[in-house]
Structures are given as C-alpha cells and as structure tokens.
C-alpha cells in the first residue's frame, strides 16, 4: 500500500506530501504519527511546506495548528511547490566585508528591539562543544575552532569567535552575530550560510555580521550601533 503522506527533507524545510486521494483525517493522523515517532529528528525543522491533498481552508488551518502547537514548527506553507525556489544557496557564499558601506544602509534598529531570554556562557567554548539555546547566547570567553553555537536569537562573543555560529536558527534573519574578534569558520544567520573569504584580513575591533539582502555582511560594530 502506498503511504498517504510522504516526508521529504528540503534544504531549509520539511516537505510533507499528501496523496491526492487521501482522506484528510487519515492524513492528519499519519502525519502526527510520523512526526511523533521521530520527534528528535524533526525537532530541527522549523518550516514545513505541505504539498498536495487539495485541502480546504479549514483543513489547512487545522493541520497548521497541529504542526505549530504539537511539533513546534515555526511556519507552515501550503502548496508552495510552484513558488520560486528557496534563495538559499547550496554552496556557502563568502561573507562580505563592507568597510565602506554607507552608514544609512547599516542602520539596524533590530539590535535594540530584541527582548527575550539569553544565556551567558562564562568560559571558553572549546573544540567539540556545542551550545544550543532558544534565545540569545553571550559567551564571555572565546569560541574555538570546532565549537558550535546555535541560537534562535542573536550571538555575542566577548572574545574571539573562531568556530561556527548560527544565529536565528529557527529562520529569523534579523538576528546578528557579533564578536570582539570575528573570525568564524562558518557563519549562519537564519537560512543563510557564509564562510570567510580565503584572504580575509583579521581586524582588531569588534564586528557585527548580519543579513543585508541575501548575503551575510560584516561591518565594524561601532558603525552599526550608531
């Protein structure tokens, strides 16, 4: 028997395909069972795209409520297969340094607006260690090569950031990553991934990485905070 629902992992989201002849309540049950069985596996997915099943508006609402309430999904889209493809590049882009960007463009009012919980890590995060937090992460120390920070909010490192940092891990691209010395192996903000250009010059002042357009851009912190 063919499954009435099929799960596909996409680059930044989970796609659930409902067979066109499936009964809605059966499909709903099947989705819940599948998600329940592999809760920890799907816990990292924030966005769901539901394809097929020709659902009515109420049915869409019901499914969306279930996915959000019971499985912690952040956003649920319906039948967006025809929408333009995700703009997240498969290959990480190089992040850009924008020393000379006009100040007006750098104005970032999200910085002061974020209110939520934060965790303070009062030691150096070393190779092989990972900090996962629903909120902002502040590290009072270094983040070394091979260490990983994953925050649903912003990340601040009061030291050198040499490892990986993922801010806005649930898809919030207004988040920022800042460090006294920003020299990460890889940066992610929302769904955008960037690595350092090979000849990136290390500077001796704090910098902020944030998303401008569809690129992660790095600028001196003093300039952004103005």
């Amino acid at each position: 028997m063919r499954d009435i629902v099929a799960f596909k992992g996409k680059q930044s989201s989970l796609e659930i395909e409902i067979a066109s002849d499936a009964d809605f309540s059966d499909a709903l049950k099947a989705i819940a069972e599948r998600l329940e069985a592999k809760r920890s596996f799907f816990a990292g997915s924030a966005c769901v795209n539901v394809v097929g099943g020709s659902l009515s508006e109420e049915q869409q609402k019901e499914l969306e409520t279930m996915l959000k309430r019971d499985f912690g999904m952040l956003s649920v889209d319906f039948d967006s297969a025809n929408k333009p493809k995700s703009r997240i590049p498969r290959v990480p882009r190089l992040f850009q340094k924008e020393e000379s960007a006009p100040v007006s463009e750098l104005k970032s009012d999200v910085l002061s607006k974020k209110v939520g919980s934060a965790v303070f890590v009062m030691e150096t995060v070393r190779n092989g260690q990972r900090i996962d937090f629903d909120g902002d992460i502040v590290v009072c120390g270094d983040v070394n090569f091979g260490a990983e920070l994953v925050a649903t909010g912003n990340i601040a490192v009061m030291g050198a950031l040499r490892g990986k940092a993922h801010a806005g891990s649930m898809g919030d691209e207004t988040c920022v990553v800042t460090a006294y010395r920003l020299a990460p192996q890889q940066l992610r903000i929302g769904g955008i991934i960037a690595i350092a250009p090979k000849n990136a010059q290390q500077v001796n002042y704090p910098e902020i990485a944030r998303v401008v357009g569809d690129t992660i851009v790095i600028a001196p912190a003093s300039r952004v905070i103005k």
């Binding site: 070393r126 190779n127 092989g128 090569f145 091979g146």
Partner: peptide, 12 residues
C-alpha cells in the same frame, strides 16, 4: 592544537 583544545574541554 585543535585536539588539545578538545582535550582541555573534556578535562574541564
């Protein structure tokens, strides 16, 4: 040095 960093983390 990276392995040493990992080891120091585990020791602590």
């Amino acid at each position: 040095v990276r392995d040493a960093d990992r080891i120091i983390g585990l020791l602590l």
